[in-house]
């Protein structure tokens, strides 16, 4: 056997076979040599404000300006611990709580449009810092990292209601009259440290205010927040009607007072009178 001819034949065959087996070798070599093999772009379509407690849809588009294909593009989402994110479309898999969204391969000059929803805890306030990073995890094809961080103001919306549970007062054993007022928050946000006011008065003395919803009588002055879907029962106890107390006004209101958040002033009002005839008056 002629060693030189055999070796040369092997080398020639290897060169031919290798180039045929990898038909795109020339382009692959060229593309692998670029500093940035893939040029990923990340666009965010975010709302101008976020309402805590309310699902907020938002969109992203992940684009690859090429020249190569991003084989394993991955989207990382970040929004703080008070934010929950759920994928709607676009992710081949979404891992929570890491918030890692695997995307389908992105060929050059192509984009994926992704839809998500995030939920902020109802008591969130201030701003939410939302971050998204797009990367190709195929390190041998050069990750083209793209990072976007956006701060969005949080504007809470709390729909509060105040109503009498019973308009006709309950007469207690000692003759005092009691009304129950229900304060509700229909959300979606929590009302933090809402301002409550009691405009009840009676000629015959103070109208006692009790909170009966959680077993403590002092809650109206210590309300931290009124979560969405929750409420208080306020019990107002007035002195019995008498000559000196011919009229009782029961009024109760709630107004979440927060900077940068506007809420309606909700309250209920009732004036309770009864015919009362002093003995021998006629």
């Amino acid at each position: 056997m002629n060693l030189r001819r055999t070796t040369t034949a092997t080398a020639l065959l290897a060169a031919a076979l290798a180039s045929v087996a990898a038909p795109g070798w020339s382009d692959t070599l060229r593309l692998q040599g670029y500093y940035d093999y893939v040029d990923l772009q990340l666009g965010l379509q975010l709302p101008t404000v976020v309402v805590p407690g309310e699902p907020t849809p938002f969109g992203l588009f992940a684009e690859n300006a090429g020249p190569g294909t991003a084989d394993y593009p991955v989207l990382l989402l970040s929004g703080g611990n008070n934010m929950q994110i759920e994928g709607v479309s676009g992710c081949t898999s979404l891992e929570l709580p890491q918030r890692t969204c695997a995307l389908a391969p992105l060929v050059a000059n192509w984009a994926h449009v992704l839809r998500f929803r995030f939920h902020l805890e109802p008591f969130s306030r201030g701003i939410v810092v939302f971050g998204a990073a797009l990367t190709s995890e195929a390190v041998d094809t050069n990750p083209g990292n793209e990072l976007q961080v956006v701060s969005i103001p949080i504007v809470a919306e709390a729909e509060t209601r105040v109503a009498f549970v019973d308009v006709v007062p309950e007469t207690l054993v000692d003759g005092r009259l009691a009304w129950t007022v229900r304060v509700d928050n229909d959300g979606p946000s929590a009302a933090i440290s809402p301002f409550v006011y009691n405009a009840s008065w009676a000629y015959g003395g103070l109208v006692d205010v009790q909170c009966t919803s959680n077993g403590t009588a002092s809650c109206p002055d210590q309300m931290n927040y009124l979560g969405p879907g929750s409420g208080w029962n306020i019990r107002l106890v007035a002195p019995p009607l008498s000559v000196d107390n011919p009229e009782i006004q029961v009024g109760y209101g709630v107004q979440p007072q927060e900077a940068s958040n506007a809420f309606d002033n909700d309250g209920v009002w009732l004036v309770y009178r009864d015919a009362f005839f002093r003995d021998g008056f006629e």
């Binding site: 030189r4 040369t8 080398a11 290897a14 060169a15 290798a18 180039s19 990898a22 070798w25 692959t28």
Partner: peptide, 20 residues
């Protein structure tokens, strides 16, 4: 190591060229 047929082509061509 990440085997890629594309990377092997110039190596094979290099050897063939030297031998030729």
């Amino acid at each position: 190591w990440r085997f890629d047929g594309a990377n092997a082509v110039p190596v094979a061509g290099f050897v063939a060229l030297v031998l030729l």
